[in-house]
Design a protein around this nucleic acid. Structure first.
Length: 1094
RNA sequence: GCUGGGGUGGCGAAAUGGCAGACGCGCUAGCCUUAGGAGCUAGUGGGAGAAAUCCCGUGGGAGUUCAACUCUCCCCCCCAGCACCA
């Protein structure tokens, strides 16, 4: 027998398989389809390391298994080749991204192929090739045409190093996911996809998917649904003009942003009714200059950004403006009046003389830039402050409002704010602070926790008040950066008594705290008894310890002093009396009391009676330890111990919910945010909070609202190596889609693709200058490219029909193959990619292009293989295990088996250079056994058969369940058994088929080369196990005495308890242990064990 | 802080509430070999014992059960994600 030369044998079969196309997938097959997908790799310059192929190997095993089980399997490979790292690397080595990407793909492909993966290479795709990105552009335009892709001026995350915008999902700890540079906020005109329209469906459609729970949870968290109410607080004194009937929705912030969306443009025309046709020279110069210097804007000759009108453009001659439905017509020469009017109505107006523009255009641009930056953000006012709350039931406890520092209203209210200087300072400092804060937290992770309470900052808007719609009280309005401008309405009603953050803020700035929810603790039970009582927390002034009564474990452990009110007694008296009676201490100083607490419990010390009490928590300090004589109630005598416990001990030992609440209230100073019964809430007193939510919302004129954390997906990128945005800007026609016939808009090769604050494509006149598809006039292309997540949000559709030139994929093919049956993906992609792909699928479904709503039915994550040192494999650590080396030394089959054997598939762990030899030995033994095969065995020992069918069952089930490690161990057990005696061909063949998906090369070599079969083992049918064979005739009966195993012996299957007992009692061992005594009880588990309880 | 996942021999790990540690690495002894970082055989959780056998053992503590790695409660530690989301 020749030793197994993996190098030549593996290469040989890889060539033969490729030539004979045995892994070619048919589109029209009678077999049931199975679509397996894996994350298509981003081909980096570094090449593959042994961490990468884990998912591929698992999928390959599964694909081979499915084929052997009669499925037509779609299983293929592609390249997510666009993206920043390639571009950056190209810059570094002085080559073009095209060249670099090509070389990377070539290297990746070579390495991937070494593993003998059974891809259908005919279906290979590459996102950076125009045949592919033509359809990425097409999808963009579909979104654009249906209003789901739009532009808006927005604060975006800007990476100063990579010179591009990042999606929220691409920021890790405030830093760029790719390069690690600190991300800053920048305001730009950006393309967005309206993924928020799908928020609800992105949540509800998760039901029924076979995904890891963890991943579902993350998707849910990212969408972040909360149900609550939107409530309006009137500003006092009222603002003019106040909104008219029916205008509430939009206020007068309707046309806040300049946008290139044609629909919005129309609306703008409705407002500004007439405009100059011909620009002056000065206007032309300024216009050109703005275009060049203000990135992110697409300027038109009439330029309005919100309440900002660039005066030079619009109305040298005359201007007709509509404000709140009234038409105002200004004639030439009425400049003064016109400006005054516009300013009064909240427009920002700057005027420049022609001379100034012609003289120093850049200075003018700078001024405009500055003005643009101060543009307000957030919801419009209409004289009210809108807040979103999940707790409308606490409205009566709202003692102040807080706006986010970037709230639009602040600018609007500017003239009335008496302390504007301070406010402005605060706004500016909070803009910078976020970055600084992050840096600080980075260096000292404990500092955050320690300062959590004090770190809230804010400032009151003096001169501004709001009216609480429930209490009609006038309440102060603050701004603070603990309120986010980007969530909800950018404003909150603060209920310090029932929200921890508001509580901390109120404490710090001495704002009123009003409790309106009386807590309910314990489990609700029928009130068999009803009692007023107290819980007294006594703190020893000397050492800060707390007075506790220890009732012992059975009776509820440590509590504080408590008791019921006697007739005519007030709570404080009652508490003092109880403290004296139970502990003897008498030098008590009353500090404060809690609101009423509704508590339900079972009184174990009184014989298990269900009780419903109303308790008051009282907080005392003990001034000295003098005692009176103890007078105990007779039934409590000796049942408890008086103890002084530290606050930390109290936190751990005090279990009872009521007592715990009192502790948290006084010692930890926590706001109560649970459910309860309303108090101090007018007519709503006595209602439970769940019920009060709707009632109070209605009463306050609010409306119930569902709020999501999900933001729209920002897709504009200011870099080169990506899909060009297929949009044309025409001065006349506005924003125009590139006609479908003209797709793809090809990414041109550039001499200089380095970013300089401007997209590289903007530097190519050849690319930029284009005729307007609508009017034929001069126009410009969009110089930006799409986020690469757009490329990967639909690639799984393309695999169904990768060569199609007329559509992104043919409908019949999509309907045959999709949705994806199994998707294996790294756990790191669980938010962004999956969310985007699901969104695109839903969108195309709504367009009637797809007949399914969810793209991925079953999802599994592979755990990450780390370097031998336990760190992520990286050049930086020098711990990269290179597949070329591993395969050269051990061969692909060994590498495959080992990665699967390392541990559970979803779990990661360090690579171990030693353990891999175990697999090598196993395969060597298989090779050896193959050369000792003898003809069919004549006698089939029953036990052998059973063992075989059991193993068969286990391996089949394990592969289906992605438990490759235990499947392999089962294969090893089989091999050990085979090896210990003669190798019979019939059994060995079955074994070989079971091994084939794992070790495709060696099994093929044995199958064809040694056993002389004509066809490939990979086209064989998966062996079936016989259920009858699994039914063993005997089993080993476990004998337990008091739950401990004392004996075991072989008995026939399905014996009765009686038989089992008599056999058991006749055992020597059992007799020895039992002696003359009889067991009290016998537990018999059929076909398993018998337990004698003595 | 919140959420999710974990904690089992020297190591990677197995175990529908029913024999804890399958399988593999490593280690020990023996065989074979000119040689071994090769192969084969046996052993291998800890402790006691010559042995049969016994006791202890799945992060810690309680509980449910005839029986708990597995279920319930509390605590500790590790990993991942989120992080003032009203």
């Amino acid at each position: 027998m020749a030793s197994y030369n993996h190098k030549s044998i593996e290469k040989k079969w890889q060539k033969i398989w490729e030539k004979s196309e045995i892994y070619r997938t048919k589109d029209k097959s009678k077999k049931p389809k199975y679509y397996q997908l894996e994350t298509f790799p981003y081909p980096s310059a570094a090449g593959l390391h042994m961490g990468h192929p884990k998912g591929y190997i698992a999928e390959d095993i599964h694909a081979r298994f499915m084929r052997m089980n009669g499925k037509e399997v779609l299983y293929t490979m592609g390249w997510d080749a666009f993206g920043l790292p390639t571009e950056n690397y190209a810059i570094k080595v002085g080559k073009s991204p095209q060249e670099v990407a090509k070389a990377n793909v070539k290297n990746f492909k070579r390495q991937v192929k070494m593993f003998g993966l059974s891809y259908d290479w005919q279906r290979e795709i590459n996102t950076s090739e125009s045949e592919y990105y033509k359809w990425t552009q097409w999808i963009f335009l579909e979104l654009f045409k249906s209003g789901k892709a739009y532009q808006k001026l927005a604060k975006v995350n800007w990476c100063p190093k990579d010179q591009t915008v990042l999606a929220n999902e691409q920021i890790v700890d405030g830093k760029c996911e790719r390069c690690g540079a600190e991300v800053v906020q920048k305001e730009m005109n950006q393309w967005f996809f309206k993924i928020t329209d799908y928020a609800e469906r992105l949540l509800s459609d998760l039901k029924g998917l076979d995904w890891p729970e963890e991943t579902i949870k993350r998707q849910e968290d990212w969408v972040g649904k909360s149900e609550g109410a939107e409530i309006e607080f009137k500003i006092n004194p009222p603002l003019t003009p106040s909104p008219r009937e029916g205008e509430k929705e939009t206020g007068y912030g309707l046309f806040r942003y300049h946008t290139t969306d044609p629909k919005t443009w129309k609306a703008l025309q409705g407002r500004v009714l007439e405009m100059r046709k011909q620009p002056t020279d000065a206007e032309e110069i300024l216009w050109q200059s703005l275009r060049r210097n203000l990135t992110g804007f697409h300027f038109r000759r009439q330029h309005i950004i919100g309440r900002f009108i660039v005066d030079f453009v619009c109305f040298e001659k005359s201007l007709v403006v509509e404000v709140d439905g009234d038409i105002h017509d200004f004639q030439k020469g009425e400049d003064e009046e016109r400006t005054k009017f516009l300013k009064q109505n909240g427009f920002v107006v700057i005027r420049f003389s022609n001379a100034k523009v012609l003289g120093n255009v850049l200075a003018v641009v700078e001024e405009i830039k500055k003005e643009l930056k101060s543009l307000p953000f957030g919801e419009g006012s209409g004289g009210v402050i809108k807040v979103f709350t999940t707790r409308p039931d606490t409205l009566y406890g709202a003692t102040y409002l807080v706006l986010a520092p970037e709230h639009k209203l602040i600018q609007e209210l500017k003239p009335r704010i008496k302390n504007w200087g301070e406010v402005e300072n605060y706004i500016n400092s909070s803009k910078k602070k976020t970055e600084l804060e992050r840096l600080k937290g980075e260096k000292d992770p404990t500092s955050r926790k320690a300062t959590e309470g004090q770190r809230k900052t804010g400032i009151e808007l003096k001169g501004i008040k709001a009216i609480n719609p429930a209490t009609k009280e006038e309440i102060p309005v603050w701004i603070a950066d603990y309120v986010l401008g980007s969530y909800g309405t950018g404003a909150i009603m603060a209920v310090p008594a029932h929200d921890q953050r508001d509580f901390e803020f109120a404490k710090k700035f001495n704002l009123p705290i009003r409790a309106v929810i009386e807590p309910i603790t314990g489990e609700e039970r029928p009130n068999e008894e009803f009692r007023q009582s107290v819980v007294a927390l006594v703190e020893n002034q000397k050492n800060g310890k707390l007075l506790s009564i220890n009732w012992g474990e059975k009776l509820g452990g440590n509590l504080f002093v408590g008791g019921g009110l006697k007739d005519g007694e007030n709570p404080i008296k009652c508490a003092i009396r109880e403290i004296k009676e139970e502990t003897g201490y008498k030098s008590l100083k009353f500090i404060s009391k809690s609101e009423k607490i509704h508590h339900h419990y079972i009184a174990s010390s009184k014989g298990g009676v269900a009780r419903n009490i109303e308790a008051i928590g009282l907080y005392f300090k003990l001034e000295n330890e003098e005692k009176t004589d103890l007078k105990l109630e007779s039934d409590e005598d000796g049942k408890f111990k008086v103890e002084w416990i530290s606050k930390k001990e109290a936190q751990q030992k005090v279990r009872d919910e009521l007592h715990k609440y009192v502790f948290e209230k006084f010692i930890l100073e926590r706001a109560y945010f649970g459910r309860g019964i309303l108090a101090n809430s007018g007519n709503f007193n006595g209602m439970v909070s769940e019920h009060a939510k709707n009632k109070i919302t209605e009463f306050a004129g609010g409306k119930t609202k569902v709020q999501y954390r999900l933001r729209d997906w920002s897709v504009s990128r200011q870099r080169y190596w990506g899909v060009p945005i297929p949009i044309i800007y025409c001065d006349k026609c506005g924003v125009i889609a590139v006609p479908e016939k003209k797709l793809p808009v090809k990414l041109p090769p550039l001499k200089n693709y380095r970013p300089k604050g401007k997209p590289p494509l903007a530097g190519s006149e050849k690319f930029m200058n284009v005729k307007c598809p609508k009017c034929g006039g001069d126009a410009e292309r969009d110089p930006e490219t799409l986020d690469t997540f757009v490329d990967s949000s639909w690639y799984y559709l393309r695999y169904a029909d990768p060569k199609n030139k007329n559509e992104f994929a043919k409908k019949e093919k999509l309907e045959y193959w999709l949705p994806v049956d199994l998707y294996v993906i790294g756990a790191e992609h669980t938010t962004a990619h999956l969310l985007y792909a699901r969104f695109i699928t839903k969108f195309l479904h709504d367009q009637g292009r797809l007949n399914f709503k969810e793209p991925f039915l079953k999802l599994r994550h592979q755990g990450m293989i780390l370097g031998p040192d336990g760190r992520r494999m990286s050049k930086r650590w020098g711990n990269v295990i290179n597949p070329d080396d591993v395969i050269s030394e051990y061969g692909a089959d060994t590498a495959r088996l080992y990665e699967m054997f390392m541990g559970p598939f979803e779990q990661g762990g360090p690579w171990d250079n030693k353990s891999i030899v175990g697999i090598k030995r196993f395969l060597d033994r298989v090779w050896g056994a193959a050369h000792r095969v003898e003809p069919e065995e004549k006698i089939h020992p029953v036990r052998k058969q059973e063992m075989y069918h059991k193993a068969l069952k286990k391996i089949t089930e394990d592969i289906s369940a992605f438990k490759f490690n235990t499947a392999i161990s089962q294969l090893m057990i089989l091999m050990n058994d085979l090896d210990s005696e003669k190798i019979y061909e019939n059994r060995f063949k079955i074994f070989l088929k079971l091994l084939a998906p794992f070790a495709p090369h060696m099994t093929e070599e044995i199958w064809k080369g040694v056993l002389n079969n004509k066809t490939s083992i990979h086209s064989e049918i998966w062996p079936k196990y016989d259920v009858e064979m699994l039914k063993e005739k005997t089993f080993e009966l476990i004998v337990q005495i008091n739950g401990k195993v004392r004996d075991k012996f072989e008995v026939t299957k399905n014996i009765s308890q009686k038989e089992a007992e008599s056999l058991t009692f006749s055992r020597e061992k059992v007799k020895n242990i039992l002696g003359p005594s009889q067991p009290k009880k016998v537990i018999f588990v059929p076909n398993r064990l018998i337990n004698l309880v003595v």
